[in-house]
Nucleic acid binder design. Structure first.
Length: 416
DNA sequence: ACTGGACCTGCCCCG
DNA sequence: CTACGCAGGTCCAGT
């Protein structure tokens, strides 16, 4: 495969308060950006590969076109980049507003500046988040890569240089890995995923039950909807209308629909409520005061309403900041986590739980507590996750959980 | 309306 | 080093 034709690097004036590339491209909005070098990122678009770098004052970009470059391919990369990053929206002003309305946001946002919503292609966004259900980010990325390599259009290759953060730019570093050529592809068109082989092929590629969802959804969009349907949801439908349309598709529930609304359809008030956001709502905002057993559709909407009332029209944008702060990938920014001890206790009968803490100082921090119980003779389940650490970041304290009739008990450790 | 299960698979951490 | 739990949910059948 050819390396293609790369344009010269160009730049747009963008501050780190407006955009933090390394955060936004890794926080699970898009699953397709690859680190192509130290502080360099690349992604295949419809007819070109776009590569990005960032300085404190500028966003640097360049395009690599397939060779020979199509005559139609004039370099409108700047427009694509501005659109993709929603750069017309003043993120710093929004942070000010959210910080004023919410002390918790203000506290968390300090370490997470420049977290903005991308404005992705609705089709890609839809399929990407169908892949995300009951799944982990690592595998989602792999699945989307396979999808593009199998059904997308080859766009050429990019030379990847060492991305190991432990071996920075110094060329003499022994740790550095040799450059490699990495192939890039466009995201598959709608039609490309409607061929009869798609479900079986994706199953073989490890998509599991999502293979059927993707195939069915592609067929629905292609055959049962007007041309350009998804894009009309952006301009011609409001949030509720778009959401209602999206959950008609196979494999698309309220959470995935909100992701598509927020990340590709300009619905800034859409708040995708996943396990993280549910956790944030109950832990940091005392939502429901522990009364809710599960995330039913009613509760789901109530959580979104809570955040919309708190943060206003662009609540989905604000939510992304706190969601990102909650990701383990970035956990080192809020606290220097070394070790976490998690204790899970399950019991078939009534359970007494006491959590003893040395109340010596406020360095001890209750990170994460979830309690679920069902009335009657049924199963009571208590899950408590408690982190305590000293000023230097060392975890020093442990949780004491006392129970009766314990039937199952696990303890696990994590490194951060 | 709400609840409980099943669901593909690969990664991560536990014994 | 293998195994169980889990991962940015959704669908389906029963109350």
């Amino acid at each position: 495969m050819s390396k293609g034709h790369a344009t010269a690097w160009a730049q747009l004036p963008v501050s780190l308060n407006q955009l933090c590339l390394a955060t936004v491209l890794r926080c699970g909005q898009s699953f397709r950006w690859k680190a192509s070098g130290p502080d360099e990122w690349s992604c295949g678009f419809s007819d070109r590969i776009i590569s990005l770098r960032q300085s404190p004052t500028h966003l640097h970009y360049r395009a690599t076109f397939p060779s020979p470059p199509p005559k139609s391919a004039k370099d409108d990369t700047a427009e694509i980049v501005k659109d993709y990053f929603n750069l017309s929206i003043d993120l710093a002003a929004l942070y000010e507003k959210w910080s004023l309305a919410d002390p918790n946001f203000k506290k968390k946002a300090g370490e997470f500046k420049g977290v903005r919503m991308l404005r992705q292609d609705p089709w890609e966004c839809l399929i990407g988040f169908i892949c995300s259900s009951n799944n982990n980010i690592s595998r989602i990325g792999q699945m989307v890569d396979k999808l593009c390599a199998t059904y997308g259009t080859p766009l050429g290759t990019i030379t990847h240089t060492s991305t190991n953060p432990l071996s920075p730019s110094s060329p003499s570093s022994e740790n550095k890995t040799p450059p490699t050529e990495v192939a890039y592809y466009s995201f598959p068109t709608i039609e490309a995923l409607t061929t009869p082989d798609v479900e079986e092929t994706l199953k073989k590629l490890g998509f599991g039950y999502r293979a059927k969802y993707i195939y069915k959804t592609a067929c629905m969009v292609h055959k049962d909807r007007p041309k350009g349907f998804l894009n009309t949801l952006r301009d011609e439908k409001d949030y509720k209308e778009a959401h209602a349309e999206l959950i008609q598709f196979m494999g698309v529930g309220p959470k995935v629909a909100d992701c598509v609304c927020l990340m590709s359809l300009d619905k800034m008030g859409a708040v995708p409520v996943d396990t993280h956001v549910w956790q944030i709502a109950t832990r940091d905002y005392k939502f429901g005061k522990g009364k809710h057993r599960s995330l039913t559709p009613v509760v789901y909407e109530a959580v979104g309403d809570l955040f919309r009332e708190l943060w206003g029209d662009a609540a989905g944008w604000a939510h992304s900041v706190l969601f990102t702060a909650d990701l383990r990938t970035f956990s080192d920014r809020l606290e220097n986590t070394k070790t976490t001890t998690t204790t899970t206790v399950k019991s078939k009968t009534k359970v007494k739980v006491e959590v003893k803490e040395e109340e010596e100082d406020e360095k001890i921090k209750l990170e994460d507590v979830k309690v679920e119980e069902v009335e009657g003779e049924e199963v009571k389940t208590i899950e408590k996750r408690v982190r305590k650490r000293g000023a230097n970041g060392e975890v020093k304290a442990e949780v004491v959980v006392k129970t009766e009739e314990v039937t199952e008990r696990r303890t696990r450790r994590r490194r951060g």
